[in-house]
Amino acid sequence: MNKYIERIYNGIVKENPTFILMLGMCPTLATTTSATNAIGMGLSTTAVLMFSNMLISGLRNIIPNRVRLPGEIVVIASLVTIVQLLMQAYTPAIYESLGIYIPLIVVNCIILGRAEAYALFNTPVISFCDGLGMGIGFTFSLTVLGAVRELIGAGSIFGFQIIPSDYTIGIFVLAPGAFIVLAFLSAIQNKLKLPSATNGGQEVPEFVTSGDVMGAFNQKEAPASEIKKEA
């Protein structure tokens, strides 16, 4: 039982997809205009992530290795379609405000990343827990980002007005604000020497396909140093 909880903890804290692995930056920047949107995006991704991990793990011995990417995408896309239709039916407001980003969950690199890196090598139940942990970690990060942006940009959190609208800085709910807030949160994280893909504190797994340049450099250098150690 303990290893299942360990997977969940790992996803939320040790390998938080947004702040530590720096994965899934596009939805992170685009959908965090408010805390509510961020939670909506986080939870829908979590749902897809859990079941895609479980299904791909279950099918890992059936899918031939050469067509595993198309296979995984088919599974993920079906799940995203289900989530999309459910959201359209039950949470139309969030569905409207997230718009194109719900179908785009299909190409979210966290989902494919976990499928490739974890679900293909582990059993369905633990893969499910891994997806759950990653999903909660993603939701948590998005909510933090969304809350900060909503607070400064619109003066509210979860829609409750805290700062009068005359004193809000509108740019923070727009695209530039996303970059600024994310950069500041990452900077604080670096300052506190928390592990992250950008400050060398976290070993960059080989599969990482993020846009993070430093990560790519680390990746290149990693094997050389390992060889040295062995020698």
């Binding site: 800085i169 509108g170 740019i171 923070f172 727009l174 530039p176």
Partner: peptide, 8 residues
């Protein structure tokens, strides 16, 4: 421009 966008 930051102000222009924020406080149009």
């Amino acid at each position: 421009c930051f102000l222009l966008i924020s406080f149009a």
